[in-house]
Each structure stands twice: as structure tokens, then as C-alpha cells.
């Protein structure tokens, strides 16, 4: 990845250095991630694949500052997350990082548009501006008609798209998506992937966790994890056999 017209590599938006996450201690310790290195630059779209339990979601929660590493560090736009105060981390998460969860995490008492506008308002954007941005984000997801409905009044697929719109609203430089197409039909999934691709082409760094080769094909690069370590760093290795672990010798 480079800036147009130069040979300079684009700035690293996300850097994982020797990143580890262990749950528990002693013989019962579970090593979810073991010394993972990864750099995602501005304008780069990276897919992360691997079998269940390989550490994909852990990698994403650490990258998004939602969990704390037990070793190594996460840098977002050059800032080491472990060295930020809680308020600074919260601000970084609100302004720079868009996170699409496997479950939607919408606030039931707020309408679709309010759910999307909330993080912007928390960040000091005027209510009217935040509302306008939220409506534009809903429009982009083809959901303008549900703006004033509550989460329990819309379908699972629509809730998922509202959650995606919330993650993408504003100028997020790092987009993290964990199986964002789970509840969606193939056509809507394509629309979501196309949207992530567009954001990446516009300069965002995108990390997508998926188990579908067809979705990973939207990315510039595929990182394969197994047992908490990176086993391959391109689209070159077996997708399915890495996923099922059958390829392990």
C-alpha cells in the first residue's frame, strides 16, 4: 500500500507487536494469542481467517482496545493503547475505531438513528449534525426507512446493518469487523463487504474476521491464525484445511 503518486508506504494505522493474551494461570492457562505481529496500513483491507478458537476474535478485541493484552502491545495510529488513560482510550475508540460486533450491541431504548448518532454526540458533535450523519449512514446501508424505529421493531438483518452503520459513521480510520455478515443474506453481505472495501479505498484500515473465502476475497491480504499464532500471511495457504485444522500435520 502506498500513497498515490509516491513510493512511500502508507502510514500504519494498526500495529500489533508480539501480541499475546492468556486467560488464567498455571496449567489451566489458555493462550488465546501467542506473539502475533501484524501491521495494517491506511487504505489496506486485511481479512483474518482461522478455525474456531484460533484467536481471531481475541485479536480483534485487543486491536479495538476492548480487552487488555497480557504481552506485547497494540498501537493505533502510533499510540500504544496500553499507555493510554481510560478516558483517552475511550476517546480513541469513539473517534478513530469502528467496531462491528458479532452480536449487534444496539441500545434497545434508542432508535436506529439515535444508536448511530450517540457515539458522535458523546464526542461533542452537535446533535443536529450527528443526526444528519446517522441518516446518511443509514441511507448508505439502504436502511433510511428504519431511522426512527427501535431495535426490537426491525429484523435481525436490519439490526446488523444498523450496527454496521454505527461503526462506520464519522471519519473512522480503523474499522474492525467480526463476522459482520452473519445474519445477512448473500446480497446484503455483498453490500456490506463492498462498503468496507470502499472505506478502505478511501483510506481507512480495515480488518475483517471471517470464515468465508468468498468474503476474504474482498481483502488485499489474508492472515491465517491457528492456535493463537499467524501461520500464513497471504491468501496463499489453504483456507478450509486451515479452518478445520485438518491441514495440521
Amino acid at each position: 500500500m502506498s500513497h498515490p503518486g509516491t513510493d512511500e508506504p502508507a502510514a500504519a494505522v494498526l500495529e500489533l507487536r508480539e501480541l499475546s493474551r492468556t486467560h488464567g494461570t498455571g496449567p489451566a492457562a489458555v493462550h488465546a494469542l501467542r506473539g502475533v505481529h501484524m501491521t495494517v496500513r491506511a487504505g489496506e483491507f486485511v481479512a483474518v481467517m482461522g478455525p474456531s478458537g484460533s484467536g481471531k476474535s481475541t485479536l480483534l478485541t485487543l486491536a479495538g482496545g476492548l480487552d487488555t493484552a497480557t504481552g506485547g502491545e497494540v498501537l493505533v495510529e502510533g499510540q500504544a493503547l496500553g499507555q493510554l488513560k481510560r478516558a483517552q482510550l475511550a476517546k480513541l475508540r469513539r473517534t478513530s475505531i469502528g467496531y462491528v460486533f458479532q452480536d449487534y450491541n444496539l441500545i434497545p431504548a434508542l432508535t436506529a438513528a439515535e444508536n448511530i448518532a450517540l457515539p458522535r454526540e458523546l464526542d461533542g458533535v452537535r446533535q443536529r449534525t450527528a443526526r444528519r450523519e446517522a441518516l446518511a449512514a443509514l441511507e448508505e446501508m439502504g436502511l433510511a426507512e428504519v431511522a426512527d424505529r427501535f431495535p426490537d421493531e426491525i429484523s435481525g438483518g436490519q439490526q446488523q446493518r444498523v450496527a454496521i452503520a454505527r461503526a462506520l459513521v464519522g471519519d473512522r480510520r480503523l474499522l474492525l469487523a467480526d463476522e459482520p455478515t452473519g445474519a445477512l443474506d448473500t446480497e446484503t453481505s455483498d453490500a456490506v463487504l463492498a462498503l468496507l472495501r470502499r472505506r478502505s479505498d478511501q483510506g481507512a484500515a480495515v480488518v475483517l474476521v471471517t470464515h468465508e473465502t468468498r468474503f476474504a476475497a474482498w481483502a488485499d491480504r489474508v492472515v491465517f491464525l491457528r492456535d493463537g499464532t499467524v501461520v500464513d500471511e497471504s491468501a496463499a495457504s489453504s483456507a478450509e484445511s486451515l479452518l478445520t485444522g485438518e491441514g495440521a500435520r
Binding site: 455483498d190 463492498a194 476475497a217 495457504s237
Partner: peptide
């Protein structure tokens, strides 16, 4: 392995064209 690498790369190219078409 060589074939898979090639096919995945073709799949990425097609997906790029699809993104353009969309």
C-alpha cells in the same frame, strides 16, 4: 498449493471487478 494460490488470487481479481461493477 500452487493451484489454490492461483485460484484465490483470481477470486480476488474477480471480486475487485465485482466491486467496480457494484
Amino acid at each position: 498449493q500452487r493451484q489454490r494460490r492461483h485460484t484465490l488470487s483470481a477470486m480476488r481479481d474477480y471480486t475487485r471487478l465485482k466491486a467496480d461493477a457494484m
